[in-house]
Simulated scan of single mutants.
Amino acid sequence: MIRAFLGLALPEAVRSALALQQALLPLPRRVAPETLHLTLVFLGEQPDAALEAAHDAFATLRVAAFPLSLQGLGLFGGARPRAAWAGVAPSGPLIGLQATAERAAHLAGIRLEHRRFVPHVTLGRFPPPDFAATARLERAVAEGFAFSAGPWMVQDMVLWRSHLGPRGARHDELARYPFAPGPRPGQVGAEMGPD
């Protein structure tokens, strides 16, 4: 069985900006900067044959490159936070890509947990901290509300194998799926004429 997910790799400049945010937040435990990514579809533990079928399905998808930016910080877990994240600026192409990739996984026979797609990059995962530590973390996240990084052109998606360990997850790239060239930033919709 292989624990795997489909996601987007981040450019070095974006990972550096995220690593700086990690240093500014009082996180009990940080995600290693080299493993920062945006998950599109978490496949879970899959046998080789199912993963091969998903790979074949992902390889048939035709996607155009698109610009993407990160925006804002937040916490998952409510009053007992268990993860800190950087948000993603609204992106129709990203939402469309995720839905298409999820559908491809289903058609390949992968049974997925049903969860609403909330695009984000996880900065830290941890057991819920005590009240004082939670208050410090919430204050730091609120102070970082104006965080942004990008835009950059998303030019491919990656199928990763995930190895869980005591110091966090390690990811190995299994396959990369390049996108067709898209419009350069500033040219989105430039080819459209008047109504």
Results as ranks from 00 to 15, higher is better:
99 A>L: 15
71 Q>M: 00
60 T>N: 01
9 A>Q: 10
58 F>K: 03
17 A>H: 02
154 V>S: 02
25 L>W: 00
85 W>L: 13
28 P>H: 01
159 L>Q: 00
153 M>A: 12
129 P>Q: 03
74 G>A: 07
29 R>A: 11
42 F>V: 10
73 L>T: 03
145 F>G: 14
118 V>K: 09
11 P>C: 05
70 L>V: 11
101 A>F: 05
51 L>N: 07
94 L>V: 14
28 P>Q: 08
74 G>E: 04
123 L>V: 06
65 A>E: 14
91 S>W: 14
174 L>N: 10
64 A>E: 13
186 G>A: 01
59 A>H: 01
1 M>P: 08
92 G>H: 11
186 G>M: 08
26 P>A: 11
138 E>R: 12
195 D>C: 04
83 A>K: 09
177 Y>D: 05
76 F>R: 07
165 G>R: 14
126 F>R: 08
80 R>S: 12
3 R>S: 09
45 E>C: 00
180 A>E: 13
133 A>K: 06
32 A>S: 13
89 A>I: 00
136 R>C: 09
186 G>Y: 13
61 L>F: 03
31 V>D: 10
25 L>T: 02
154 V>D: 08
14 V>M: 09
193 G>F: 04
178 P>F: 10
75 L>Q: 10
89 A>M: 12
12 E>T: 05
59 A>P: 05
122 T>W: 03
63 V>S: 04
136 R>H: 05
145 F>H: 15
57 A>L: 09
36 L>F: 07
54 A>P: 04
117 F>L: 09
97 L>H: 05
154 V>G: 06
26 P>S: 15
14 V>Q: 01
17 A>E: 01
51 L>I: 10
86 A>N: 07
56 D>W: 05
164 L>V: 14
50 A>P: 00
28 P>R: 05
129 P>T: 06
115 R>V: 11
53 A>P: 02
189 G>E: 04
136 R>N: 04
143 E>M: 11
169 A>Y: 06
131 F>T: 13
133 A>H: 06
100 T>M: 15
15 R>K: 14
144 G>S: 01
120 H>L: 03
170 R>D: 14
144 G>N: 00
120 H>W: 04
92 G>C: 03
125 R>C: 10
30 R>S: 12
70 L>T: 08
65 A>V: 07
58 F>I: 06
171 H>N: 13
83 A>H: 02
150 G>C: 05
46 Q>M: 14
172 D>E: 15
3 R>N: 04
93 P>C: 09
18 L>C: 06
74 G>W: 00
39 T>W: 09
117 F>D: 10
31 V>C: 00
166 P>I: 02
139 R>Y: 00
141 V>L: 01
66 F>V: 07
71 Q>C: 07
86 A>P: 09
76 F>P: 06
149 A>M: 08
133 A>Y: 10
160 W>C: 06
151 P>G: 08
118 V>T: 14
128 P>R: 04
49 A>M: 13
98 Q>R: 13
7 G>L: 07
95 I>L: 15
133 A>W: 08
96 G>K: 06
